[in-house]
């Protein structure tokens, strides 16, 4: 009896595997390793994009979206492998070690000259992370008030053009290597505020930054070029059309919105900057 069950299970698994190998699907022959989809994320990957720095669990917004896209492309959960890259590794010339790279990469025309982006899987509002002390000192969710603050941001993000073009602070912003350094600068009082995508800002203000507060958000529809996240692929990637098809399918079916609702907090409580 046991033996029969085992055999049956094996049969099912191999059947799935055969299906997952993507034979006859769009992605056939286009992935790094035939039959496997290799996805890159950050090192470490941050909440709420990936929970507990474990993308294999499928928990967290980007991890969940990744598996959903993989499934639409014909790769089962067992046929997805994860690698880690920095931003620089993602854009360096030469052979890539991933099929697509997913770590809140904003789509910009300049970047598209060098690499390929998928259709956006998330449109982010930018939000102002600050501390209660700064709020108590009179900082408000108005552009005028924001201009007078001392600003910081992570140097590799599209927050910087946004800062310089929309907020236009009177003092030169200070820029840092990563979230941790920005937080250190906020806590040392060297900067008043930092610009992040809303989910990251929500997380940092609630969990990481002592006395952290969210001053407000710039909703995506308000900025000239909304911050849209896309999957990054090698320039001229053959896989792009398959990825785009999967994302379109997920968007139209409402599955993407459902994943977003599950993993990204509702941001309705954050005031909108005027």
């Amino acid at each position: 009896m046991k033996l029969i069950a085992c055999t049956a299970l094996t049969a099912i698994v191999s059947a799935t595997a055969a299906f997952a190998a993507g034979d006859g699907t769009c992605a056939a022959g286009k992935t790094l390793t035939e039959g496997t989809l290799t996805i890159a994320t950050g090192n470490p990957a941050y909440y709420p994009w990936v929970m507990n720095d474990a993308p294999e669990s499928g928990e967290g917004f980007e991890a969940a979206v990744a598996y959903a896209i993989a499934e639409k492309m014909g790769f089962g959960k067992n046929n997805v492998t994860w690698v880690r890259t920095s931003f620089d590794e993602a854009i360096q010339p030469g052979a890539k070690n991933f099929d697509f790279n997913m770590q809140q990469y904003s789509i910009t025309p300049e970047r598209e000259e060098m690499v390929d982006f998928s259709l956006p899987y998330y449109t982010s509002a930018m939000a102002v992370l600050t501390t209660q002390n700064v709020v108590d000192a009179g900082a408000q969710a108005t552009l005028d008030s924001l201009k007078g603050l001392k600003w910081g941001a992570v140097a590799t993000t599209t927050a910087i053009p946004m800062l310089n073009e929309v907020i236009q602070p009177s003092d030169e912003p200070l820029l840092y290597n990563d979230n941790a350094d920005v937080n250190a600068a906020i806590m040392a009082g060297q900067i008043d505020a930092a610009l992040y995508d809303l989910p990251t800002a929500l997380y940092l203000s609630a969990v990481v930054v002592e006395g952290g507060a969210l001053l407000g958000q710039f909703p995506p529809d308000q900025s000239e070029s909304p911050d849209q996240f896309g999957l990054l692929m090698e320039d001229g990637s053959a896989l792009r059309e398959c990825v785009d098809a999967a994302i379109t399918e997920l968007t139209e079916s409402g599955e993407l919105a459902a994943i977003e609702a599950q993993w990204l907090s509702e941001a309705t409580g954050v005031p909108v900057i005027k």
Binding site: T108, M114, L175
Partner: peptide
């Protein structure tokens, strides 16, 4: 924090990939 040439180059690098 200070945005000197190396940092500015990093910002450009990330903007232009």
């Amino acid at each position: 924090g200070p945005v000197e040439i190396f940092r500015q180059a990093g910002v450009y690098k990330s903007l232009y990939a």
